[in-house]
Amino acid sequence: MLNYTLRRLGSLIPVLFGMSLIVFFIIRAIPGDPARTILGEKASEAAVESLRADLGLNDPIVIQYFHYLGDLLTGDLGTSIRTSSEISGDIWPYLAATMELAFVAMLIAVFVGVNAGILSAWFQNSIFDYTAMIVALIGVSMPVFWLGLMEQWFFSLELNWLPSIGRESIRDPVEPITHLYLLDTLINGNLDQFFTVVKHLILPGVALGTIPMAIIARMTRSSMLEVMRSDYIRTARAKGQRMLLVVYKHSLKNAFIPVLTVIGLQTGLLLGGAILTETIFSWPGIGRYVYESIQYRDYPVIQSGILVIATIFVFVNLIVDLLYAAFDPRIKY
């Protein structure tokens, strides 16, 4: 297992290297003079020249790349053009906001998706099965941003049940410690605030979790159907074991491997989808951070934001790969 982990980590090196290369070229691929594009037509020649020097655009391209790579390896993500502050210092609160949202979305997706999939498989070809699968198909086809807007309209504007934007109550802001507000409010022992944060998480969490939920439900169903036809499940049922035990202990454990792959893949989609969800719900996460920087042509932030999200995606998939063994001892490395 240790051997496999090391090999898997080793195979990440070329991927991470390639990713840094692509991100590096984002700014260099801008047609014309990137410094001029960033500052706009009205900027003075001196300002453009100074930015060009700051971004290191005057050096030969190979030198530029090695500088960039060197900075990345020492944890330097560059400086924001808009705020003139270090991106590595700014990025954590945004990242924490996205991680919290993605976690809740995944929690909803896995809980609802897996259970709907199990029930669909158990009651195969029943009304429930058909309804669940049609709902799942619609879920996969739904634009996240539209679902988010509809939720806002119905649950916030019409029914006034849940807050439509933001992470916290403006009147009672959370005192940040880790910037993961669910955790921070608990550390501060402020339960009222905790529930306010939970309320803020529901609508964006459901919007972001819908597509993975639908995909997980379909995957769980087909994977459960396969497992439930196997001899050992038939034996367990023939022994008269209770349905709950058969499903959740025997079947799910084995049906979970393909589901796990989907969960890993969906995490990437979730991080991408976060840009849309965060825009709609004014969620101060990394997606919004990147999106706003596009409007200000703040390319260093665009580069670093994208690199950070992609790196997380790569590591999530690594963890999923390593988790296989925990769920299925038949997998040998």
């Binding site: 692509i22 989808g273 840009i275 999200i309 995606f313």
Partner: peptide, 8 residues
């Protein structure tokens, strides 16, 4: 490498 980025 291309697939390592979330597509959107």
């Amino acid at each position: 490498i291309l697939l390592a980025f979330p597509s959107i």
